[in-house]
Amino acid sequence: MNIKKGRVHKYNRDNIDTDVIIPGPYLKIHDPKELASHAMEGIDPGFHTTVTPGDFLLCGGNFGCGSSREHAPIALSTLGIRAILAPSFARIFYRNAVDGGYLLPIEIERSTLEQIDDGNMIDIDFENYRIINLDKNGESYTIKPLSDMIIKIVEAGGLLYYSDDEKGFAS
């Protein structure tokens, strides 16, 4: 997986919904850069100025609940967020993030939310399903194994670019 180490932006609350990630009035916008400048505006209007490409979001459970707007993962990935770490994700957000090839939703243990601090530099070891905290002497936490299909779809740049022959799971 081409995800390298990056810094964590932490919003420790559950149910961060799509109206928070990209508020309703911006739904008519389809320019990714402009969407990115409104990312997370519902809780942190300055968020877009603080992200460096390759960074991670660390959030509470049910991340991305609410509407089906693909604007949400587009805004975050255009800013350079490569993966979101959360105890759970809302269904459509998860699907959009993967099938659009925007970013990886990574499920973590709820306790990990307390162990990683805002601004920590982390690394993700996909082979051993662990997050390594470089700012805490290499302390590490487990992640839920991701199916190969999910990683491959994101690596291909989305479902449209994921070749038919690879669809071993298809009927």
Binding site: R69, N96, G100, G158
Partner: peptide, 13 residues
Amino acid sequence: TGLGHTDIAYVLM
């Protein structure tokens, strides 16, 4: 069920 833009594009194809 509801889907996002990419999934709908895939269905259209």
